[in-house]
């Protein structure tokens, strides 16, 4: 009986962690998508990339608890790329990288949703 109670407690604790982590990751992914899709990005790209980079660096440790290293590394690389393109002012690459960041963020968000696509 004792092992059953301990197991039930562990399982509920795990469900709580999963739930709160899911909310956190989805909110973070939404923030990133908003950040790169926002029209203010065109006005002050340097400031927007800096905000994005700061946000990512502040939250990377919490997000990487449940998101695979592959997605984390891809997002980090894309943000570095975007920073470089903004610095040289390559508009074509900036737009392409913004789209890729948005896509990677929606992938991260999708993995934290109940989707048949994720199951199989």
């Amino acid at each position: 009986m004792r092992s059953f109670i301990i197991t039930a407690f562990l399982f509920l604790l795990m469900l709580c962690i999963i739930f709160f982590n899911m909310q956190y990751v989805r909110k973070s992914a939404d923030y990133i998508i908003d950040c790169v899709s926002d029209s203010s990005f065109e006005k002050d790209a340097k400031e927007a990339v800096k905000d994005l980079e700061n946000f990512w660096n502040d939250n990377i440790s919490k997000i990487s608890l449940s998101v695979g290293y592959k997605e984390i590394d891809r997002m980090s690389e894309l943000i570095i790329d975007l920073k470089a393109y903004v610095a040289v002012g390559n508009l074509c690459e900036i737009n392409r990288t913004r789209d890729l960041i948005a896509e990677t963020a929606s992938d991260i968000s999708r993995l934290e949703k109940f989707h048949l696509e994720n199951m199989f």
Partner: peptide, 23 residues
């Protein structure tokens, strides 16, 4: 390349199934 959390969750799920099924 695999976070430890990816192993801890299935382990807890399996533990729960095993203990609850025997119970």
């Amino acid at each position: 390349n695999i976070p430890v959390a990816f192993a801890i969750i299935p382990m807890i799920v399996l533990l729960t199934f095993e203990v609850s099924s025997s119970w």
